[in-house]
Design a protein around this nucleic acid. Structure first.
Lengths: 347, 347
DNA sequence: ATGAAAGCGCTAACAT
DNA sequence: ATGTTAGCGCTTTCAT
């Protein structure tokens, strides 16, 4: 196969110097319109395509960006990746995607790979607790997700958990559910603390003792939600059990546990999710949930990165609002007894 | 911030020449063990990390690979991406991921980006019908998915649709369903023809007239499956309606349509899916389906690419087997009347 | 086994 | 507006 044509071939073909040809190809420079046309034509004829490696080497701009997320196969993160990808592609750049699997070492190794590829910047959902790790990263980066709150000095994008929790609790209250049980993530995750704090705020404003809420912990998986729900069903006091889950997967697991226990949703139990994964639309009943703007999160993170690189001001941490998706997993308890939770069911 | 250390800094620190230092860092070369250690230590002390742009430029090996799929936000393709990613990362390389959205132009533009980034090779699920497009691609590549069959001369990986369809039809037969209705993809897709051909083969072996099967077309979406199912329900002849869908999303849509029409699954209708998307596990009843080995598909495609690059022989087109996942969307009609389809229900 | 020197393809001064 | 020259950081002959 013939050697790839270089800028020199193009220059020769167009009858100009190497630099003129280069200038014509990177349109920004000051070149005569006629010359530019001539060069463009020659480039097309030769089948020339700029070598980004060489460009990056000389100019320091590789046209490469990095994305490190826990798992691209997780629908939420896939959406985030898609958002970032779209914006990066719009800037004629490319995105290197890595999955860390919530693993410290893997994360570190991916960050190293990004540095070696000389990416211009990266978007990272950090696994690490250590600020040092990122201090040493040595590249412009934007954090994404709740754990980014550990790094207050770094630009970051996340969903507004406080607003989301209040949205959920307000809706629950409107439907007549006063003090839902909670299925939360592991104690180690910062997102859990954020979630719980917002619940407490909400309760205190309404003179509900936060300590009266049943709280179960799980690991954000369907199985975890399933067993957490089993525990809640065992210790259940009220006739109708309402559960607010910290993510959709656990909520789906909780619904399955209820069904296995012979309880019907939403007649006997109500479940509210958090995330907005597609699967929630196919469960029966459909999962009412609070949707995080995943794709927008990715978009905005990429945007923030480009802003940062362009030297534009950054507004530190940005929180994106979530929205409620009503499907059918919540009972309407209003008509029965507005304040007291009694035997549920509609009408 | 201080300038990034180069191989020259390391060489100076180790008291050797540039080339010796480079050799020590790219371990393959013949260097004295003691020298290598010395250089390694110096590199660590200096915080040196190889510049892959420079390496790629000089050696022609960029350490970059490309993946072009329809949509990373689609769970199936996300799994494929994950598989490819894992294998590429295991080779100390990085993966550039692009979503084409089944759009010709976008695909072309992404391929151009890959060429400019000087990827060593790419994995592509082609949108294009034209072989030319890829002939001009000018890079080693591996195709993935059914439409790859348009390119018989190119190494490609796909799931074994023939085996999958037979697996499904055999299982259906065992459960007492003799001639299922079909909800297929658009007529333009090669996968549809593949699917249909396998169904015909199966029918002919059993003296069933393929023309007697009801066939509906949809666009692989939930909404498409929903309306296709509505059409089937209208024209329904037998007491129990069995549908084999060409993908899970349409199957999920079909189940919803049945529910809306007041038909219970699996008592009144049976639905068999194809893909193995996570959402199928959460529907009620759970969707019985044929799972494609998505992650393995990605892995194997990447493997094939590396084999190709290493000059190892390629076995042309590879078909990966699918497996049946039994959940609860299929009625057991055996006990009622093994041959004749009558009013369904279990036991 | 190591060093010296050339050069990958491009851009960024510096000339003109 | 265009040409000339140097050099980004590395690998790779070719010496030694």
């Amino acid at each position: 196969m013939a050697r790839r044509p270089t800028i020199i071939d193009v220059a020769r073909l167009a009858g100009v110097s190497k630099s003129t040809a280069a200038r014509a190809m990177s349109d920004s420079a000051e070149v005569n319109d006629a010359t530019r046309e001539k060069v463009r034509k020659a480039a097309l004829a030769a089948g020339y395509e700029r070598n980004h490696l060489a460009v990056g080497m000389r100019s320091g701009r590789s046209g490469l960006f990095g994305l490190v997320i826990p798992d691209i196969a997780n629908p939420f993160w896939a959406e985030v990746a898609r958002g970032a990808q779209d914006l990066v592609a719009a800037h004629d750049a490319s995105l290197l995607v890595f999955s860390s699997d919530w693993d410290h070492e893997r994360e570190a190794s991916h960050l190293r790979a990004l540095r070696q590829a000389r990416v211009e910047g990266a978007i990272v959902n950090p696994v690490s607790d250590s600020v040092d790790e990122f201090g040493r990263f040595g590249l412009p980066f934007v954090l994404i997700g709740s754990s980014a709150e550990r790094f207050p000095d770094t630009p970051s994008i996340g969903s507004d958990i406080r607003q989301a929790v209040r949205l959920g609790l307000d809706h629950l209250e409107q439907m007549g559910h006063r003090s839902p049980a909670l299925i939360l993530g592991p104690k180690s995750r910062l997102a859990r603390a954020r979630f719980l704090r917002s619940v407490h705020e909400h309760c205190l404003e309404r003179d509900i003792d936060p300590a009266s809420l049943s709280v179960e912990s799980a690991d954000y998986t369907v199985e975890g939600g399933f067993s957490a729900m089993q525990r809640l069903l065992e210790q259940q006091r009220d006739a109708h059990l309402t559960v607010f889950c910290a993510n959709d997967l656990m909520a789906l697991g909780a619904m399955m546990a209820a069904r296995v226990a012979g309880r019907e949703c939403p007649r006997d139990v109500s479940v509210l999710g958090f995330d907005g994964v597609p699967a929630g639309a196919f469960s029966w009943p459909g999962l009412t949930t609070i949707e995080k703007p995943a794709r927008e999160l990715g978009r905005r993170a990429a945007e923030a990165l480009f802003d940062h690189l362009a030297g534009r001001a950054l507004d530190g941490r940005t929180y994106l609002p979530c929205r409620l998706i009503e499907r059918g997993s919540l009972a309407d308890l209003r008509v029965v007894t507005p304040l007291r939770i009694a035997g549920g069911g509609r009408t």
